[in-house]
């Protein structure tokens, strides 16, 4: 008995020993900054001249038009982009899951490849494609779809659509991989049975694929929501938040407050906590809605 206890304790110690380095690192580089940021968000002042200010930073958020503007921008991206991207990813995944499809490997790689590119590089390329004299305008003009070039990044809505397009191009393949993996776990006999019962492709997609992929759809929705709320690179490089702040994102506003404007780390930290809360709330809602067991 005593021996068993000793062995158990020994195993426990070894177990803890394995976890400890990672735990310590996570505490130092994740939890400590999270707590520090919370403390800083209660401070106010320029640069290092910080002093305790209570909830002033949080109260200020309600009257900050730039904050409200960037919040609504981010939600516009979220509402337009996440459903579009996930729906596309689902359809492509189901198409690629067809065993009779030729060159599946090629298509899979071709669609996944964009998300292996650097965020900065792809944003730069998108910017040059959608420049006034860029490829997109030349193509549309030659197809006679438009008569004069569209100033994509110069107008609020075209700029937003451009961001959504870029994000979709970059991330659809990434989500598709999750769905493909999920589809592997669905027993092909279910589809076979449905086919025999006369279910067409659309019915099979909506009645079998989507319900059985629900946990993965939930996962990708939460990840995409999280990613979109924190969007930075695309809006910084493609549109630089413009025109007239029409594509300014929350992270970009945080960056400006910390590194471009007179540094206000307290206020920037408060905004980062708003993102944190939003992600938490949205994830909670999605889990409640998506996970009805």
């Amino acid at each position: 008995m005593l021996k068993v206890l000793k062995l158990k304790r020994k195993q426990n110690i070894i177990g803890w020993g394995f976890i400890l380095p990672a735990t310590i690192l996570i505490f130092i580089f994740y939890f400590y900054p999270i707590i520090r940021a919370l403390l800083i968000s209660f401070q106010s002042g320029v640069g290092i001249n910080l002093s305790y200010a209570g909830l002033i930073n949080y109260r200020r958020l309600f009257v900050d038009s730039l904050f409200k503007g960037s919040l609504s921008n981010v939600f516009i991206f979220l509402i337009l982009q996440v459903p579009l991207m996930l729906f596309l990813a689902l359809i492509i995944a189901s198409l690629l899951n067809d065993h009779k499809l030729k060159f599946r490997g090629f298509f899979r790689i071709a669609i996944f490849l964009p998300c292996a590119t650097s965020l900065v590089a792809y944003a730069l390329i998108f910017r040059s494609i959608f420049a006034l004299d860029g490829f997109a305008n030349i193509l549309l003009m030659n197809l006679n779809l438009i008569s004069s070039p569209i100033n994509w990044i110069g107008q609020p809505w075209t700029a937003r659509i451009l961001i959504v397009l870029a994000l979709t191009w970059r991330w659809t393949g990434y989500n598709m991989i999750f769905y493909l993996a999920g589809l592997q776990n669905i027993n092909p006999t279910i589809y076979e049975a449905a086919k025999i019962d006369g279910a067409n492709a659309w019915t099979r997609f909506t009645k079998i694929t989507i319900p059985l992929l629900k946990p993965i759809i939930l996962l990708t929705t939460i990840m995409s929501t999280n990613g979109t709320l924190q969007i930075f690179d695309e809006t910084q490089i493609l549109t630089n938040g413009g025109p007239a702040n029409a594509t300014l994102s929350l992270s970009q506003y945080i960056y400006r407050l910390s590194f471009e404007y007179s540094p206000r780390f307290g206020y920037a930290a408060a905004i980062s906590y708003v993102i944190f809360l939003l992600v938490a709330i949205l994830a909670f809602i999605q889990m409640k809605v998506g996970d009805r067991r």
Binding site: V46, G242, P243, A244, N245, R256, E260, Y261, S262
Partner: peptide, 20 residues
């Protein structure tokens, strides 16, 4: 001054809006 970049961005937005 201390708020030069803030003002620069604000003026940039203003001119964008004025030109629109």
């Amino acid at each position: 001054g201390l708020y030069n970049y803030e003002a620069r961005d604000a003026l940039g937005n203003a001119i964008t809006q004025i030109m629109a």
